[in-house]
Each structure stands twice: as C-alpha cells, then as structure tokens.
Simulated assay, not measured.
Amino acid sequence: MLLDDGQLRVTRSAGGTLTLHGEVDARNSAVLAGVLIAARTPPGTPLVVDLQGLTFIDMSGLRVLRPGPGRPGLAPVRLVNVPRLMRRLLDMLPCETAS
C-alpha cells in the first residue's frame, strides 16, 4: 500500500499499475501527486493509474492526473478504467503534450 489516509487508498499491483480507491479532493491531492511522483517508472514509460475504485474526484485531483500546459509533472500517465463522467471532465482539461 502506497497511501491510506482514510479517504484515499493507493495500491500497486505486481505489474506496477497503481489503483486508486476512494476520494481525491483538495485535502489529499498534493499527497497523491507525491505518491505518483515517487512511483515513477523509468523515463518515457507511462505510469498506469487505474481509476475503477475512485468514487469522487474534484478539480485539484483531476489536475494531478492530467497536468495542464505550463504545469510540469506527471506525464506520461496512462489512465485506465476511467468512469464515463470523469472521462468527459478529463477530456475538457487542457493537457501537457510531449515535445
């Protein structure tokens, strides 16, 4: 277990995928960002994050998962099992593009 703050739990599978369970909001999004940075895979290899167990996320959490222009960070992150409504929100955010 990489994180369990009573609101959000982050686990890592044997294959390296991180799975989020619970809620991400302004109270724990900075901690989540730190967990994702610490869990980085070799450069250029996407960090796979499974959102199937996520029940709530606010804009601060969305920005951690999809850094925008001018906000360096966690890219490349590959999100899997993204709930449909969350996908719509993520698609509306500008994202960092590889140069």
Rank of each mutant, 00 (worst) to 15 (best):
G53A: 11
V48R: 10
A26T: 12
A26Y: 13
G44L: 05
V49R: 08
P69H: 09
P69F: 02
E23M: 10
T11K: 06
T17P: 05
L32G: 05
R63S: 11
G73K: 01
R66D: 04
L18G: 08
V10E: 08
L51E: 03
L20W: 00
M59E: 14
G61E: 04
Q52I: 11
D50G: 03
I37G: 11
T11R: 14
V64H: 00
V31K: 14
T11C: 10
L36V: 10
G53S: 08
A38P: 03
L62Y: 01
R12Y: 05
R27S: 12
A75G: 12
A38I: 04
G68P: 03
T45L: 06
D25C: 03
V31N: 01
V64A: 01
R12Q: 15
P67H: 01
A30E: 14
P67K: 01
A39F: 10
E23D: 12
H21S: 12
Q52E: 12
L20G: 07
P42D: 13
T41F: 01
G68C: 06
A30Y: 07
L20F: 02
L32R: 01
T55D: 04
T11N: 09
G44M: 06
G15V: 02
D58M: 07
T41R: 15
I57D: 00
G70C: 09
T41Q: 14
V35G: 04
R12K: 12
R71C: 11
R71Q: 15
D58P: 05
S60P: 09
L47V: 09
R12E: 14
L74C: 03
H21M: 10
A39K: 08
T11P: 04
T11I: 12
G53I: 06
I37K: 12
G68E: 15
N28L: 09
F56T: 01
G22W: 05
L47W: 04
P69N: 08
E23A: 13
R27L: 10
T55H: 03
R40C: 02
P46F: 01
G61N: 07
A39R: 07
R27W: 06
F56Y: 14
P46Q: 02
A30D: 15
T45I: 12
P72L: 12
I37N: 10
V64C: 00
I57M: 10
R63D: 11
A39D: 13
L65F: 01
S60L: 04
L62C: 15
D50K: 07
G34M: 05
L51M: 08
G22V: 04
N28E: 08
L36G: 07
L20R: 02
L32T: 06
H21K: 09
A39H: 11
V31T: 15
L65C: 01
A75F: 04
G73R: 06
A30F: 09
T55E: 06
G22R: 03
A38N: 12
F56M: 02
L18W: 09
R12I: 04
T45Q: 13
R40F: 00
G16L: 05
A38F: 02
S29G: 03
